[in-house]
Write a protein that binds this DNA or RNA. Structure first.
Lengths: 139, 139
DNA sequence: GTTGACCTTCCCATGACAGGAAGGTTTAGA
DNA sequence: TCTAAACCTTCCTGTCATGGGAAGGTCAAC
């Protein structure tokens, strides 16, 4: 199966398949006589695994470790769980940060008239004004 | 005020100050005889504005527009509010995505024993297994 | 046999940083 | 006054996952 078919079959773009190969995430596939990549069912399974893991936000490096664990039939599930929990913690931290940004901006937005006048609490806040001043008002 | 002092005074690293200059976010500052950058109070205000906007997640490009609006004393606050609302929407979308990832992973993690045994619903899920199979079990 | 749709490798760009090298300047202390 | 440390300057590189595109080889259908 060539790279186009493999891409269709797994939902991983051809570009990305080649990239995963160069960074060592997947083993180089077989090649046809004419040097086309030739993917086995096993290769496709790896690609699907990668796609799913990416969709859960794992980095390529983390997926490398997950793939090793997947291939190791003597893995302790403890290790997988630890990785998952750490990733969840990372996600939660980033979510919290973004939530704080969104909340702060929502507050400011809510206080902004949003009309033709220049007075704007959003800009005032960005300008670090303690009150409702803005550079245009007090240059 | 040289770049080191400006960095301390604004919380923007010297590296970033130079970067913002090269990408045109800030105007090139004055220079001393010996070619050192020399920042005015106004420059510092711009840098503080940028730092605050970055902390709210605005991109450098968006901050460029915000700075223009800030400097334009005839701006309609409508434009600022629109930018803020769009940004909030972007944040919310990304938060939702990450929330979905975290929730999915939490579910899987919760079902994983996390001990010495190899059986692992997390890997099973990544492998796209409909049931609790894993590659190690069914190669 | 031609055409079009593939494939190959290689290079470049993204965004917002950080690190570092090579070389000039300022400043503090001996 | 000299020197060493702590600055500053520009320029180049790498990050991470991804897309775009050029130049050239291959396959498939008609």
């Amino acid at each position: 199966m060539n790279i186009g078919k493999a891409s269709l079959a797994t939902g991983v773009s051809a570009k990305m398949i080649r990239y995963y190969e160069t960074v060592g995430l997947i083993r180089p596939s077989e090649r046809t006589e004419s040097n086309y990549r030739d993917f086995s069912e096993r290769d496709l399974n790896d690609l699907r695994f990668i796609r799913r893991a990416r969709s859960l936000g794992f980095s390529v490096e983390e997926i490398g470790r997950l793939l090793s664990l997947w291939r190791d039939r003597n893995r302790p599930s403890r290790e997988v769980k630890a990785m998952a929990e750490k990733h969840v913690a990372d996600l939660d931290a980033r979510i919290k940060e973004m939530q704080a940004m969104a909340d702060a901006l929502r507050d400011l937005s809510h206080c902004c008239a949003g009309d033709d006048r220049p007075d704007c609490p959003i800009l005032s806040d960005l300008a670090g004004s303690p009150a409702a001043a803005s550079q245009g008002d007090t240059p």
